[in-house]
Structures are given as C-alpha cells and as structure tokens.
C-alpha cells in the first residue's frame, strides 16, 4: 500500500493543479497578513476560507483523480495486489498531497510572519488539523460517489451536490427546523445536528478555539457544558475521525465488489 500511496502522491505532487492549490493558499496567507498583520485575525479569516474550500477542493480533486486514473487503476488491478491496497493507497495519496498543499501553502506565510512566537499557534494548528480532516473526509466521500457512478458527469454532479448539501443546504434546513420548533428545547438537537455534518463540526471546533464558546454558552447550559469542557473538544475530534473512517471503509467495501 505504501508503494501505491507513494506513486499516487508523487503523481499528484507533479500535477499542475496541486501547484495551483498550493499557490492559492500561499498567496492567501500573504494577502491576509498584508491586510491585517495580526495573526489572530488572519486565523479567523482563514477559517472561513478553509471551512468552505477544503471540502470543495477535496471533492473535486477526489472525483477528478479517480476518473482520470481509471486505466492506471486497471493496470494495478491486473497486478498481484489486493484491491484494498490499491484503493487505500490511492485514497491516502490524494488526501495527503492535498493536505500537504494546504499545510505548506498556508504554513509558509504564517511561519514567516512569526506564528511560532505567537499565542495563536494553537488556533493555527487546530485550523490546519481541521483542514486536513476535511480533506480526508471529502476525498473519501467523493471516491465513494465516483465508485458508484461509472458516468463521469453523474459522478461529478453528485459530488458537487454532496458538497453543496454539506456546506450550505444542511445548515439551511438545520436553521429552518430550529426556527420552526423553537418552542421545544433545542440545544441537544442543535448539538446532535452539528455532529452529523463534518463541516459544521469543524467550524465549531475552530470557534471553540477562538473562544466563541462563551457566545455559544449564552444560549443554554447544554452548550455551555459541552463546549466549555475538554470533553467537547475530544468528542469533536473523535467524530471527525469517525467521519474519515466510515466513508473510507465504505469506499473500500464498494471497491471490493466493483467490476472494472
């Protein structure tokens, strides 16, 4: 698997899109510092970008890579390799190369502008960790969709739809249902709904780091207890891991049964 991972990774690392992605984050980082030289502010703005963009890029790259490497996959399938090995290797290759572009691209400007001396180092690390998690989650989801649809247009369409659902529609429905049922105690529902969307979960995780917890706590004891403790942080991280593991496992299961 490590060999497959290595080759997928190297293949992507050489692709033009990886550079585009990398330079995008590099430029973003520098622009943020240019506009407000305060590291904390830059972290907040960066959060807005990362929460939306890493899932989108993960989705698009995942689908694109899967379809464009189809023949290569077939070549590998004819070799004495386990299917799991092949797909896990490719999946990790894509996810790692995207995460690398993110971490290095954003990291360079932050290091240059002195993140190590700043108190925001932990916020920043959380941000990158969450960005990497989102990449892994959305690459896995898009691999699943690409495996399910032989037709590229369909696969692409459904992947974008999935992103749109997770990034926007879910929150819209969530907000609407909270407003409709606002006579009932909502905090548990809200908490639950957050855990079931990795984008919301990541957003909350970063907001917690940025000390918005008190603002959330304003609304009720459940939020306060959950977000005020290390338990909330731990549970969020566990849920994010589950969000990587389940789509990953589903993807491998699907790959086992698929005809090429």
């Amino acid at each position: 698997m490590l060999k497959i991972l290595k080759y997928s990774f190297m293949d992507l690392m050489r692709s033009r899109w990886s550079y585009v992605y990398f330079f995008f984050y590099l430029v973003l980082g520098f622009v943020l510092f240019f506009l407000n030289s305060d590291v904390t502010k830059a972290v907040i703005t960066l959060m807005n970008v990362i929460i939306v963009l890493t899932p989108l890029i993960g989705t698009i790259f995942g689908v694109m890579y899967f379809y464009s490497s189809r023949e290569f996959t077939e070549l590998l399938l004819a070799q004495p390799l386990k299917r799991k090995t092949i797909f896990a290797g490719q999946y990790l290759g894509v996810s790692l190369s995207l995460s690398m572009s993110l971490v290095v691209g954003v990291g360079i400007p932050f290091v240059i502008y002195g993140i190590f001396g700043s108190a925001a180092i932990w916020d920043f690390s959380t941000l990158l960790l969450v960005g990497a998690f989102l990449t892994f989650i959305f690459v896995a989801l898009s691999f699943n969709l690409a495996l399910a649809f032989k037709d590229r247009i369909k696969g692409f369409g459904f992947s974008i739809l999935m992103w749109l659902f997770m990034a926007v529609i879910y929150d819209g429905l969530f907000l609407l249902s909270m407003m409709i049922f606002d006579d009932y105690p909502l905090d548990k529902l809200a908490l639950g709904a957050t855990l079931f969307n990795p984008i919301d979960l990541s957003r909350i995780l970063i907001l917690l780091k940025l000390d918005i917890s008190a603002l959330l706590g304003y609304t009720g004891a459940v939020f306060k207890n959950f977000f005020g403790t290390g338990l909330g942080l731990l549970l969020s991280l566990i849920m994010l891991s589950v969000w990587v593991l389940i789509p990953g496992a589903l993807m491998l299961r699907q790959a086992e049964k698929k005809d090429f």
């Binding site: 189809r70 023949e71 290569f72």
Partner: peptide
C-alpha cells in the same frame, strides 16, 4: 496487456 493503454500522465 490491457486494451487501452492509459497511464498516469505525469510519469
């Protein structure tokens, strides 16, 4: 020897 020979283009 597969039918269509398409490989990772960057290699």
């Amino acid at each position: 020897v597969p039918q269509i020979a398409n490989f990772p283009g960057n290699l």
